[in-house]
Simulated scan of single mutants.
Amino acid sequence: MGKLGKYNFMKKFSQINTFLPDTRLATKSNIKAMLELYDSLYVKPDEGTGGHGILKITKLQNGYSLKGGKSTRTFHSIDALYGSLRTVLSKHKFVAQRGIDLLKHNKRAFDIRVMVQKNRNKQLVPTGIIGRLGKANKIVTNYHSGGTPLPLDTLLKSHLQGEARKEYIRRMKELGKKASSVLRKSYKSKPAFGVDIAIDSNMKPWILEINTGPDMSIFNTLKDKTMYRRILRYAKLKR
């Protein structure tokens, strides 16, 4: 399944569906309907990884902006906006996802990756959690698109204090585990899941995507290698 298939599968489960941002096939009618509901949308390749090919549509006072990579264009109508998107959307399957106003650190947006792996008994265990700090003025936080991996504790310091911060990080690990447990029903043989979570300005978490073949190398960028060693240890387990 691509992003849309995973979303449609997961939204059937009450334990996580309130954490899933509205995601639909990127058609003109869907984009128009969603822009009536939300201030911004992300248009993503259904099968894409690493943040490549992602576009952001933002409502303006008198039209819309379309941002991708380093370029930003403005349009006065949905027709003009979609006219610019049509060529891209006709080549591959894309999804439109509700834009989340990401929490910021030093005025730069960040999100979270939670690594969840099977143990020897085939039970899912959260083995790592890391923050991804986006570049200034970039619309994605992905490591391979220029995002900076940092300890989540560091990124949350200006938003939560002491025990409240520790408890929040624990909750994010549990949410990653819960989301992986749901998707595992369709991906029974996968040994690991990488859960991407956004936090909005009200501290509500949103599950953006779950990768079924997550990259472990991002955890090796941290000075403290404890999580990375644990992830490698779990990756080598015989189940």
Rank of each mutant, 00 (worst) to 15 (best):
A198R: 04
K190V: 06
P214K: 07
K190L: 01
I197V: 09
R170A: 15
N202H: 15
N202K: 15
V182Q: 00
G194M: 05
K190A: 02
D196C: 04
G194L: 03
V195I: 13
K188I: 14
Y168F: 15
P205V: 08
I169L: 06
P205R: 07
N202P: 05
G176Q: 00
G176H: 02
K177E: 10
G176V: 00
S217A: 14
L208A: 08
P214D: 09
R171D: 11
Y187L: 04
R170V: 08
S201H: 13
T212G: 08
P214S: 11
M216L: 15
A192N: 02
K190T: 01
M216D: 15
D200M: 04
Y187E: 08
M172W: 03
S217P: 03
A192M: 10
D200H: 07
P191Y: 10
G213D: 13
Y187F: 06
K204L: 11
S186Y: 06
N202F: 10
M216R: 15
M216G: 14
K173Q: 14
K178W: 02
A198T: 01
F193K: 05
A192F: 02
S181W: 05
A192H: 01
I199P: 03
S217Y: 10
P214W: 04
I199S: 06
K204C: 09
L208Q: 07
G194K: 01
K190C: 01
K188A: 10
P191D: 06
L175Y: 05
W206L: 13
E174Y: 13
K204A: 11
G176A: 04
N202L: 12
S217R: 12
Y187Q: 07
W206D: 13
V195K: 04
S180V: 00
I199C: 13
I197L: 05
I218E: 08
K177L: 11
R171K: 15
A192C: 07
N211R: 11
I197P: 01
S189G: 03
A198G: 13
M172L: 15
G213M: 13
E209N: 07
N202M: 09
Y187H: 05
E174C: 09
K178L: 11
G194Q: 02
R171S: 12
K177A: 06
G213F: 12
M172A: 05
S201G: 13
R170I: 04
G194F: 03
D196L: 05
T212S: 11
G194C: 08
E209P: 10
S186N: 04
I207Y: 01
K188H: 10
M172E: 08
S181F: 01
M203G: 09
P191W: 06
A192S: 12
I210F: 08
M203N: 15
L183R: 00
D215H: 14
I169E: 05
A198L: 12
A198W: 00
V182F: 03
Y168H: 12
I197S: 05
S180R: 00
S217K: 12
R170G: 09
G176S: 01
M172Y: 05
S180D: 00
N211F: 10
R170Q: 13
E174A: 14
S186E: 03
F193G: 02
M203Y: 11
W206N: 11
I218G: 08
I210E: 02
G176L: 00
